[in-house]
Nucleic acid binder design. Structure first.
Lengths: 352, 352
DNA sequence: ATTAAAAATGCAAATGTTTTCATTTTTTGA
DNA sequence: TCAAAAAATGAAAACATTTGCATTTTTAAT
């Protein structure tokens, strides 16, 4: 089926022959240039250039068992949520001279085992996953092979695997607390299903904690489930808004918030005068929306870069002294989508 | 620096030993199961399971020179433009049992050579690039190694390399023509720099052709350059709108259009009553905007999938009979962001 | 100039598969 | 039941590199 072959590309031995040295020296030249004498170095450099030689990073994998490739498994690529993360992760990896193998499972955790198998077959040196909720199988497969695993995006002090991310409970808490401070008492929650989404689950719990409430105390249109999809969120929120308008809406993330904004616009409801909206994430574009979206910033880039560093560093991930866990601080960013309706409002203004 | 090694993972010979057959047979079992007898098949299957063996796809690369890996080089990952493409490309590749190596150069073509080198070192079987404008070096490097190259996203009947995509000239033409049909005469163009962006260049030319105009005939605030960035576009368009409001705005793509919408909203300008907006791309979310964005759909998914198929098929790309070029049809999708101000309007309505 | 130590290089084995060719086993047809 | 053909399997070479050990060359110290 496949074309015949792609042999004939010059290899280390052709270069060696042309340079008049042994293959071993050529190998050394590419791995530790300092160790080969200046003169031979030039010879090899020249020969390699003449022949148009490129190192074969793949062939070296057999030797030590490291492929120089790191896997990244995300729920979805095609969504603002992870785009920034992927970009940053990938380019940081590049600067470590590694490459990224990426795959998406579309929020269907059962696909992970197939993906992990495929990654294992490619002998990845490490894997970054999103969040903690994964099936046992893939995790065990990775553990059995001794492949370092890192859960990115969420932080829990008692996480079962090494992790790096924001404390999503706190993130949710901060968002809800802000709403409370601004005087909102009737707030609607719009979240994705939390079954296999620990980030959303933690945020939701943080929100409920700040609200000092229980999920069961929320009426059916004060808690709405929708996927991370602008359209789906928009429709669900339109429905809710028509039934019974809350004072504020707290969204599981900024794409849901965007749906909320569109929902209001399509109904002619003014933000923030008629209803306040707060998101979570601070995705690209959230700052430019009209009105600018008040949200809690998740530092995707920092998370991604540190994740890449960790995975490349090799060592620290499964450190001997236990599981590495890194908490990245998030930050409330106040813009225009939440109105201050608290009674202190004027007082505070005056004090300034 | 790196950890010692990851040897000790069971290999084909361990499996063979345990199953009581030769390594060659095990190899055959994984590549062409039909060719090995049912009984031995079971033996091997069992042994592999017992040992927790995973194929080593990397070791096989040396044999025939194919790594089962395809490269994808995009200007940027972190942007709605290519997210859908990447997602579709990646998952289609997976179904071909290949993996994707992706890298972004951030609209800086000079980074491509480094990326290509890195991909070559990983012995990719093929590469998909975006558009036609690339430096000579990377293209030559790929050609020298005989690596199939495919330009995705844009189509030109005289493209220098194989391509698959929409005819961006036509796309621009269709968009502008729609505006004309709707009676708009004073239209502003908001496009990204076209230096190393042939897609934008072609669209722009299509637009100008439909308008029967020349770039030089456009006053300074009827032609605006801005990068594909919501914020930058928004600011630029706000400025233009304040100076001198056109009847319609035609945007280089939907993210610019989104900036345009925000610009109008922040100025309290009604869309489409005060100004019409048309985008290009039909990205995720464009249909949900308020008002729904009229745009020209670029079928990212179809492009990506066919690109993957081509690159995996191996053959067709550098076909003997010349360069493979595939044109994917685009489609005007009319929503609410363009107002019909033509004089025929009422007549047409009545006729229906 | 001589010798010891250090640096640079080469040799050959090893890595985990695939693949060619040869050999053994099974099937088929009389 | 036997021979011939077909199918299945095995042995060993090949792939492109790295690496431990041995050897040669260079440097430094006397």
């Amino acid at each position: 089926m496949r074309a015949r072959s792609r042999k004939g590309a010059p290899g280390i031995v052709e270069v060696a022959k042309r340079a008049g040295v042994s293959p071993a020296t050529v190998s050394r030249f590419f791995n530790e240039p300092e160790i080969v004498k200046g003169k031979t170095r030039n010879l090899i450099e020249q020969a390699a250039r003449d022949l148009g030689y490129y190192r074969n990073r793949i062939a070296t994998t057999d030797q030590h068992g490291f492929s120089g490739t790191i896997g990244l498994i995300v729920p979805t690529i095609d969504n603002a949520i992870f785009a920034e993360l992927i970009q940053a992760f990938s380019s940081r990896l590049l600067s470590h001279d590694r490459t990224m193998l990426i795959a998406a499972h579309g929020y269907n955790p059962s696909l992970e085992v197939g993906i992990v198998k495929s990654l294992l077959e490619r002998r990845i040196d490490g894997v970054a996953l999103i969040g903690f909720e994964h099936e046992k199988a893939p995790l065990e497969m990775l553990a059995a092979r001794g492949v370092p695993v890192l859960a990115a995006w969420n932080y829990r002090k008692d996480s079962p695997i090494p992790c790096i991310g924001a404390d999503n409970f706190q993130v949710g808490f901060v968002a809800a607390q802000h709403l409370m401070k601004m005087g909102h008492r009737d707030v609607a929650l719009v979240f994705p299903p939390t079954q296999s989404n620990d980030r959303a689950e933690d945020r939701l719990n943080g929100v409920l904690h700040a609200l000092d409430m229980d999920l069961s105390q929320l009426s059916h249109n004060r808690f709405i489930e929708t996927r991370y999809d602008i359209g789906e969120a928009k429709q669900a929120i339109i429905k809710m808004l028509c039934e019974n308008r809350p004072s504020a809406i707290i969204c599981g993330n900024d794409v849901i918030a965007q749906g909320a904004v569109y929902a209001c616009q399509s109904l002619g409801i003014n933000i923030p005068d008629d209803v306040s909206i707060i998101g979570i994430g601070d995705f690209r574009g959230s700052s430019q929306m009209e009105p600018g979206l008040t949200t809690v910033r998740m530092p995707a880039q920092r998370i991604a870069e540190q994740a890449a560093d960790l995975l490349c560093g090799g060592l620290s991930v499964t450190s001997v002294k236990g599981i590495t866990r890194i908490k990245i601080e998030s930050e409330l960013v106040v813009r225009k989508s939440v109105k201050d309706i608290s009674s202190h409002k004027n007082t505070e203004r005056l004090l300034r």
